[in-house]
Nucleic acid binder design. Structure first.
Length: 854
RNA sequence: GCCCCCGUGGCGGAAUUGGUAGACGCGCUCGACUCAAAAUCGAGUUCCGCAAGGAGUGCCGGUUCGACUCCGGCCGGGGGCACCA
């Protein structure tokens, strides 16, 4: 009787051998074709969770598969190690963010190693290490020198209690997510990266990313938000503080004769100037500032405006003037911060016009009769021809747009232009645990870069988190420095970089990590771009857009000749679990719940538990399952197998006890097949049972199934359809189990082990050794499918009458249409249904079906 | 509001270009082994029907010899963006 597979022994044994032999080290000098497989590196929050396990298992299967296919594979791992949780831990637990982070890294590294991932640990990096962020500072200065970095006053969300800037995501219902204090808007000097300079190429570049999910490309496209239209000048009837005109932007210049007002944003320079003479307007602007920015507030916010009393001249008619408003729904940071209002064909403008009694003139009509019809409570935004529009009458929108732009350009009061939704990337964070911005502020010289030989600018260790705010600001000495340019007393920048900067180039550093430079260009270019990048869809916009931008920026300044960092992208689904709630509404963790008499109860107290929705594993819902004890119990391979089974990788995977047990059974099933064969010995099938003819036929059938499995599993892994590859292996295992011992069966077992190797590598190594094979299966080649064995010589033909299946018949592959038709007509079922009448029409799809139309 | 995706057995899901719907797994049922249980193995498992047969991929309609697949319209679920001019 064969012993069970013991993962506890096998996992550790093979992991040590892989490590000792450096099996997964990527060689920079290899002559093999290269493949760079990368999963988004984790934030070291404390422990590995199931989402990590799923993500890294997928990448690992692909990395191992590519290795078996002859590629030199780069599959590295590191840590996205800067960020706020470390500072929160520092405040709550009185530990230094660095100590907390590094100890988490140690824990999580050990957990990852326990799963047997084929990673090149020699390239491990952590973004909080000065040997990483120092190079980042150098790159920042390169971008600064190239004028891709600038500093400007900008409005931020300010938490007055924690005394820090909050990202938009950290503002919940207008309050700071930690302090709960109402968030204020403040103007602060912030560093920006000129991502808008790259808007066009970032948008155009999406077209070439054909191995990215359409969804992600679309999200980026919307985020970049290209709008084409006309930017034109409105002249004021009388100047304000020397300002005689201002620009507006519109995508619908064809509706220019429907204009009934002009409006500027509350923080538009004109509004500011006018407010200087008008206390009531100043009060209105102050009121606009007060109002919240959350989605809910915007939804219900009333359109409000302030009539300045000034008027602007219509560009096509100097005698026609429009009232100038300051309006709360006009945004300073989109377009020009000023609009013309065309109430008939824009709902917001219509709401505004009705409220302030402004004229509403229809200028688009679906058909000519409608030209005189008034607009009701809904703006008309549909197609049609222009009406009431002088020389534009009769034109469709596109023609009208072209005509107005042409005239504006000819007459010199406007230009056809493109406006982007994308804003420059604000990277300043008033936090300690991040990359220090390598700039010195000097009263005389302004912002001066830290000299290269003084990099890295290292974070001070002796910081205090007892008081809110940025510890770097409060540090007694750290920021004090002499100006590198003039030598006068100056001050270090105390803001640190957004952690998204850290993750915008780590994939380059993985590919090449010299000591004295961020990367070696030639070395990096040999590995990049990443062939397959795998991570959560939550990074579809920010991280992936920033990384694309950073790479293009490095290319523009001549540091690397790569445009797109990730040629293939895959976004995997989440790991979910049922949620449980006790009667008092508190969430109950799965390991406190047990089934008693068919009902779920809290194991300790027996109180009943209600089953809630299946949701993403999260601490707040208490529905997480810690991978580590599961790995201890079932071994790495069963967990990996489960992560790949059932759910398509892009969809959510529901964790279940039954599922992991099923995976465990499969691991043992493979092991049983292998160990039975090993016990039987390579020659015991000789003088086998049954008639030779039937045996040979069965062997051929098994071999064909084997080769179909090789082809299918390979194709499925290649396309990341792991759940289908899993099904291929189940099918093959069943076919082998049913076959009597034979050389073909022995061959099938050995090959099956190779097919399973990327997914269950420890089991595969152990089986490989047990079968007496030389070397590691990790180094073995992926089996080759023989094309001749992929085709059946006998095919099953579906026989339909009027498209309904009535029978199936067997025929030699490649049978003629006539033969197939004859076979179909010979079927009893068909004869009965046709009832002696000949079919009116016969459709034959060779090797597939015959459809008889009665 | 705008944009996108998805609806297939009790459950997760399969199904090249339209061509035998339900592969594979989970669960369940029955059986074998066992004093018994666990483990394992075998058979079955879309629904209705004893059967012959019929129905069936969210709903309604269309195209087609033939539709899970293509088109139009609904309903339901999920995601992204959102006062974007």
């Amino acid at each position: 009787m064969a012993a069970r597979f013991n993962p506890l022994e096998a996992d550790a044994h093979w992991q040590k051998i892989w490590e000792d032999r450096g099996t997964f080290h990527a060689s920079d000098s290899s002559s093999r074709p290269r493949s760079y497989v990368l999963e988004m590196f984790p934030y070291p929050s404390g422990r590995i969770h199931m989402g990590h396990v799923r993500n890294y298992t997928m990448g690992d299967v692909l990395a191992r598969y590519r290795r078996m296919n002859g590629f030199e594979v780069l599959h590295p791992m590191g840590w996205d190690a800067f960020g706020m949780p470390a500072e929160n831990a520092a405040m709550e637990k009185k530990v230094h963010p660095g100590d907390w982070t590094w100890s988490n890294i140690d824990t999580m590294r050990a957990q990852l190693k326990r799963l047997g991932f084929a990673l090149d640990w020699s390239r491990e990096l952590a973004t909080c290490d000065p040997s990483y962020y120092g190079h980042e500072q150098a790159l920042f200065l390169d971008l600064f020198a190239a004028d891709l970095v600038y500093r400007k006053q900008s409005e931020v969300n300010w938490d007055p209690v924690d005394m820090t800037v909050l990202a938009n995501e950290q503002v919940i219902d207008g309050r700071g997510w930690r302090s709960g204090a109402p968030v204020e808007r403040r103007k602060l000097s912030q560093w920006f990266l000129k991502i808008t300079d790259f808007a066009e190429e970032l948008l155009d570049g999406l077209d070439d990313l054909d191995q990215w999910p359409d969804k992600v490309r679309l999200m980026q496209e919307n985020w970049i938000g290209r709008s084409q239209g006309l930017r034109f000048r409105f002249d004021l009837d009388s100047p304000v503080d020397g300002i005689a005109s201002f620009d507006v932007f519109t995508t619908r210049p064809d509706t220019i004769f429907g204009a009934s007002f002009a409006a500027v944003a509350p923080d538009h320079p004109i509004a500011t100037a006018l407010a200087g003479h008008d206390p009531a307007l100043a009060a209105f602007i102050a009121e606009c500032r007060q109002s919240g920015t959350t989605a809910a507030e915007l939804e219900t916010a009333e359109k409000k405006g302030f009539d300045t009393g000034f008027r602007v001249r219509h560009p096509f008619d100097a005698g026609w003037t429009l009232p100038l408003y300051v309006a709360n729904f006009v945004l300073m940071d989109y377009g020009t911060g000023a609009i013309f209002g065309c109430p008939a064909h824009d709902q917001r403008d219509l709401d505004f016009a009705r409220k302030y009694g402004l004229p509403v003139t229809r200028v688009v009509a679906a058909d000519p009769e409608e030209a005189a019809e008034p607009i009701g409570e809904e703006a008309y935004v549909g197609p049609g021809r222009l009406v009431n529009s002088r020389f534009l009458d009769g034109l469709v929108a596109e023609e009208g747009i072209r005509e107005v732009i042409a005239r504006a350009e000819a007459e010199g009061w406007g230009d056809g232009t493109i406006v982007w939704r994308l804003r420059d990337w604000g990277v300043s964070r008033q936090r300690y645990w991040g990359t220090p911005i390598p700039i010195v502020h000097c009263d005389k010289c302004g912002a001066v870069p830290v000299p290269r030989d003084q990099l890295p600018v290292v974070l001070p260790e002796d910081v205090d988190f007892a008081t809110p705010g940025n510890p770097l600001d409060r540090h007694p000495t750290w920021s004090k420095i002499d100006c590198p340019q003039c030598g006068a007393a100056a001050r270090r920048e105390t803001d640190t970089l957004d952690t998204f900067v850290d993750s915008s180039w780590y994939f380059i550093r993985f590919a090449s990590q010299p000591k004295d430079a961020p990367f070696d260009r030639a070395e990096a270019e040999r590995w990049l771009p990443v062939n397959q990048y795998i991570g959560g869809v939550e990074h579809a916009i920010l991280h992936l857009l920033y990384a694309r931008f950073w790479t293009r920026a490095l290319k523009r300044i001549g540091l690397i000749d790569i445009e797109e960092p990730f040629s293939g992208l895959f976004t995997q689904g989440m790991v979910t679990h049922e949620t449980y709630r006790a009667a008092d509404g508190r969430w109950v963790s799965p390991d406190e719940v047990e089934r008693r008499d068919g009902r779920l109860v809290v194991a300790a107290t027996g109180e009943p538990v209600e089953t809630g929705r299946i949701e993403k594993m999260s601490k707040s819902k208490r529905n997480t399952v810690d991978p580590e004890p599961i790995v201890d119990q079932y071994g790495a391979d069963a967990v990996r197998w489960f992560m790949l089974s059932d759910s398509p990788p892009e969809r959510d995977l529901e964790w279940s006890e039954a599922g992991i047990q099923g995976s465990w059974r499969f691991v043992q099933r493979i092991w049983r097949l292998v160990s039975e064969q090993a016990e039987r010995g390579a020659s015991s099938w000789l003088g086998g049972e049954g008639e030779a003819g039937a045996g040979a036929e069965a062997e051929r059938a098994l071999t064909r199934r084997l080769h179909r499995a090789i082809a299918a599993a390979g194709a499925n892994i290649e396309s990341l359809a792991f759940n289908k590859a899993v099904a291929n292996l189940y099918e093959l295992a069943t076919a082998i189990e049913k076959a009597p011992p034979s050389p073909a069966r022995s061959e099938a077992v050995e090959t099956m082990v190779r097919l399973a190797a990327p997914m269950v590598p420890h089991l595969a190594e152990q089986a490989w050794a047990l079968l007496g094979k030389e070397g590691l299966i990790a180094d073995a080649a992926w089996p080759e499918a023989d094309p001749a064995l992929l085709v059946e010589d006998e095919v099953t033909i579906a026989v339909q009458v009027n498209g309904k299946l009535r029978d199936t018949v067997s025929a030699p592959k490649g049978s003629s249409r006539e033969d197939l038709e004859a076979l179909a007509l010979a079927s009893d079922n068909v004869a009965r249904i046709l009832d002696g009448k000949p079919p009116r029409k016969v459709i034959v799809v060779p090797d597939r079906l015959v459809n008889l139309v009665a």
